[in-house]
Design a protein around this nucleic acid. Structure first.
Length: 645
RNA sequence: GCCGACGUAGCUCAGCUGGUAGAGCACUUCACUCGUAAUGAAGGGGUCCCCGGUUCGAGUCCGGGCGUCGGCUCCA
């Protein structure tokens, strides 16, 4: 048999040769370093026969993600082995590698469980397995034998997994992996032995439903991570530590932007500085929307249940709504703006010449999210979306979607966010004909393809009324959050009986496009703070410049400079407290204020300030007038710029 | 909502096996009047998340609730 190596050389091997044979044929060093092989995009055990004629890559610890996935999956098995030894009667379920580590889900017998306090003992046991260099042995066994084995061990979850494999995939055999006395149902692949795992660390314990189904048993999930060396592990833990310093909840409090209170869970209190930031973002959204033909509207917060029945929310979304009642009429606080906008659209007659109609509304929404899901600003119950609804003719859909994406990308470009696109297609529960869905999905896919955009398809994850393109980004810990969205909606126009008069003088049904760029201002600000570690650009900084007199006799000059800057509509404060200049500078730095303007005798004499720029330090004396122009320029252009001499 | 952990001054945290609370920072006052990341001294500040229970006595032990954090489920 022949396999081709990445450098193009062809390796001639006897029939039935394994990955280990291939590595040995290349060299003894590689034979020792080999962890697995990769053929046809799949990582496979070193001990399995190679696929004839396929490209062959030997996976070693240098192979990056493939190699880490391998030992993390190994580590998951070692974790399960350790837990089974320490907690007899535990039932094991599944344990994959994930971004950043691995987990394993267990069901502990009644009355027992683990907490993080138990981690040292479990880690100790894991290290013993690793040190013992237990080989991972793969056995291919018949269904009956596998069932018999796990039945005798009382491993019910494994039985269910095997039965499902038989039913859904019609498998005749399953693979078992054995290391030491531990055997697990597993597809593989695994490294040759447990000693390839260099360093492990258990990180947290959490609940997780069996098979992600909230109606089924809550299992105990143990998260951990593994690396080839202790040093890499330390670096990762250090990185996580630093990420926590960027947490928007911590920075929001430290910078005086917002606070939370038990008195209104899931709702932020926006302090004066946070409100400045908020208002600047709303202004950005307004300016960009106006440039793109959006007109701002304002609609009520509270509506009779009739509206929600028409829109379908009363049936499909009620558990997420705050509902109230007065004079025997049921009302609901709006969780979305679309029904109000549809209702508004209906209040007049429209010609095809009027389309597209683009209503924008930074509207306050309330959603009664489950208490356990609330998360700082990133998931709240009270929030404002930079929301808009476009009412257009069917043939305008593609162009409008393209414009929505352009709008979103232009927005994110200002902040330097990296965005991932997801196209969510028809769900099982849906309305509308298949032709309509074909057309809608086709239009979205065509825009993505025409513009050469990379995206992931989320099969069956669309809204019940139409497919959507979602824009995702990550927080400081790499967790993905949805910001913007572009959704095609054929349902709302139907339900609200929206029409316009076409060129043929007949009534036609418009299409609704539901779109947002930042998503909610709350979530956007949370993500923004984490991306920038709280170092807001000049145009967003609540305090753009802090004036610092050296001593009392410069206080009046400092107040004068502050007044001059404030008169230009810029945000400045003077700190003339009786503290040392070093102290006041330190506090200004901790507040992440972009500019500090120091005024002593020299500056006061010359109508100048010594400019200290965040990160850059002392830039020397600059005339007050010139500094003000520079600050005004950065603010107006919404872009930081170097201060020329 | 579910699983687990946690909840002490504005913030970060001590408080051992139960004997009615403490530090640093912040705040107030006074002194210092200072040249680019912490001047010094004194002082004020607490329903120990809430409600029950055990106990002579609960911040500490037990039960229930609320909130927060990490996940699961769900979503901007």
């Amino acid at each position: 048999m022949n396999v081709t190596l990445p450098d193009g050389t062809v390796l001639d091997l006897p029939d039935g040769a394994t990955g280990a044979d291939a590595a040995a044929a290349i060299g003894p060093g590689l034979a020792r370093a080999a962890l697995a092989v990769k053929q046809g995009g799949q990582v496979r055990d070193l001990g399995l026969p190679l696929i004839d004629g396929e490209q062959l890559e030997i996976v070693t610890r240098k192979s990056g993600r493939d190699a880490l996935d391998l030992i993390r999956h190994d580590a998951a098995h070692v974790l399960a082995a350790a837990v089974l030894e320490l907690y007899p009667g535990v039932k094991i379920s599944i344990g994959p590698s994930i971004d950043g580590g691995f987990y394993y889900d267990f069901e502990f017998p009644d009355g027992s469980g683990v907490t993080e306090a138990d981690f040292p003992a479990i880690e100790q046991r894991m290290r013993e397995h690793i040190k013992a260099a237990e080989p991972f042995q793969r056995d291919e066994v018949g269904i009956e034998e596998a069932l018999e084995r796990f039945r005798s061990e009382g491993q019910d979850y494994k039985l269910e997994l095997i039965e499902d494999l038989v039913r859904d995939q019609g498998v005749q055999t399953v693979s078992l992996y054995r290391n030491g006395a531990f055997t697990d149902l597993c597809r593989g692949p695994h490294a040759p032995a447990t000693d390839r795992i260099g360093a492990i660390k258990l990180q947290s314990v959490a609940g997780a439903y069996w098979r992600g189904d909230s109606s089924r048993t809550m299992l105990t999930r143990i998260y951990g991570t593994a690396f080839f060396t202790a040093r890499e592990l330390e670096e990762e833990l250090e990185r996580l530590e630093q990420a926590r310093a960027r947490d928007h909840r911590k920075l929001g409090r430290e910078l005086g932007l917002f606070s939370f209170s038990d008195i209104s869970p899931g709702s932020a209190f926006w302090l004066p500085k946070g409100t400045v930031l908020w208002n600047e973002l709303v202004a950005l959204s307004r300016d960009m929307g106006a440039e793109r033909g959006f007109t701002e509207v304002k609609t009520p917060l509270l509506y009779d249940s009739e509206l929600w029945k028409t829109s379908g929310h009363w049936g499909k979304y009620r558990e997420n709504m705050f509902v109230t009642e007065t004079e025997e009429r049921a009302f609901g606080l709006k969780p979305m703006n679309c029904p109000g906008h549809a209702h508004m659209f209906r209040s007049q007659r429209w010609s095809y010449r009027d389309l597209p109609v683009r209503y924008a509304e930074p509207g306050l929404l309330h959603r009664n999210e489950l208490s356990g899901t609330l998360h700082g600003l990133l998931r709240v119950r009270h929030f404002v979306q930079d929301d808009a609804h476009i009412f257009c003719a069917e043939e305008q859909v593609e162009q409008e979607v393209r414009r929505c994406l352009e709008y979103a990308f232009s927005t994110f470009e200002i902040f330097g966010f990296e965005i991932e696109l997801e196209l969510s297609t028809r769900p099982e529960q849906r309305i509308g004909t298949d032709e309509m869905w074909d057309r809608a999905e086709g239009a979205l896919a065509k825009v993505l393809a025409d513009d050469g955009l990379d995206y992931r398809v989320n099969e069956g994850d669309g809204a019940f009324y139409g497919p959507k393109i979602d824009l995702h980004t990550t927080d400081s810990l790499g967790r993905s959050w949805q910001l913007g969205t572009v959704q095609l909606d054929y349902s709302m126009p139907e339900r609200f009986d929206l029409v316009y008069t076409g060129a043929d003088n007949a009534e036609h049904r418009p299409v609704m496009i539901h779109t947002a760029r930042m998503g909610s201002f709350e979530r956007f600000i949370g993500i923004l703070i984490e991306h920038l570690a709280g170092e807001l650009p000049v145009w967003l900084a609540p305090v753009q410049a802090l004036v610092l007199p050296i001593s009392d006799r410069h206080a009046q000059a400092a107040r004068d400079v502050a007044a001059t800057i404030r008169a230009r509509g810029l945000r400045v404060e003077a700190d003339d407290r009786a503290e040392s200049i070093g102290r006041r500078i330190r506090e200004g730095e901790l507040q992440k204020i972009p500019y500090m303007l120091v005024i002593g005798d020299r500056e006061a004499d010359e109508q100048a300030v010594s400019v200290r720029r965040r990160h850059e330090g002392d830039l020397g004396m600059v005339a007050v007038e010139r500094f003000v122009e520079h600050l005004a320029h950065e603010t107006a252009t919404r872009r930081d710029a170097p201060l020329g001499r």
